[in-house]
């Protein structure tokens, strides 16, 4: 019996591939999420230019010869994009700190990550409010609905990522994130990077390509 019990120590960590269950799971989840965003992006692209009335995303000449001003604000979103890129950079530094047992680096970079994430969400809230005041409600036209749905779902994912990272930060602040548990941050970081790469796709597809 003692022999069996002894074998358990190994079994608890045993995986046939050597990859931790949670890491494999978060990657699988990310794969599944790819199809979720692919469906939203596909919908956006199929409906692009199909609306029956304005406002339009990009400046265009109407048939009556008048120019319709675009509603998208590229400088604002470029700023938001940079924030997300920064946060991805910061979170790898935080993870690297966690793996080396450098508590200062871990907490500092993690705070910076969360800070950037909050500002990104703030940017999006500002953007949406701004559009609303310019007369683009959720149901105004097909562009409005597809745009708000796609970027709104992305924003929701950012928010969930922020809740997750903040939870990890609280755990780290309590000193419960030693190097051997750095996987807890690694999987949150993977999700965070995924949210970032989705934005890397959305940014040109929605904002830059007319």
């Amino acid at each position: 019996m003692a022999d069996t019990a002894h074998a358990q120590v190994d079994e608890h960590h045993y995986t046939a591939t050597g990859i931790d269950h949670r890491k494999l799971a978060i990657w699988t989840f990310i794969a599944s999420e790819c199809m979720f965003f692919a469906s939203l992006i596909g919908t956006y692209l199929v409906y692009k230019g199909r609306d029956v009335s304005g406002p339009r995303p990009h400046t265009e000449w109407l048939l009556n010869g008048r120019m319709q001003e675009q509603i998208l604000e590229i400088p604002l979103v470029t700023f938001g994009t940079s924030l997300l890129l920064f946060s991805s950079f910061f979170v790898v530094l935080a993870l690297s700190g966690a793996q080396r047992g450098n508590r200062k680096a871990l907490i500092g970079w993690l705070c910076a990550t969360i800070f950037c994430g909050i500002f990104f969400v703030g940017m999006q809230v500002f953007e949406f409010t701004h559009f609303y005041h310019r007369g683009m409600g959720y149901t105004t036209n097909l562009f409005a609905s597809t745009f708000y749905t796609l970027t709104g779902f992305h924003g929701t994912h950012v928010t969930l990522g922020l809740i997750w990272l903040t939870t990890v930060l609280v755990v780290a602040l309590r000193g419960k994130l030693p190097p051997e548990k750095s996987l807890n941050l690694e999987i949150a970081a993977l999700y965070w990077h995924f949210v970032d790469v989705v934005w890397i796709v959305i940014f040109p597809v929605v904002y830059l390509i007319r």
Partner: peptide, 10 residues
């Protein structure tokens, strides 16, 4: 919204 409503372009 009009995702699947033809009158709104859906």
């Amino acid at each position: 919204t009009h995702f699947f409503v033809p009158s709104g372009g859906g």
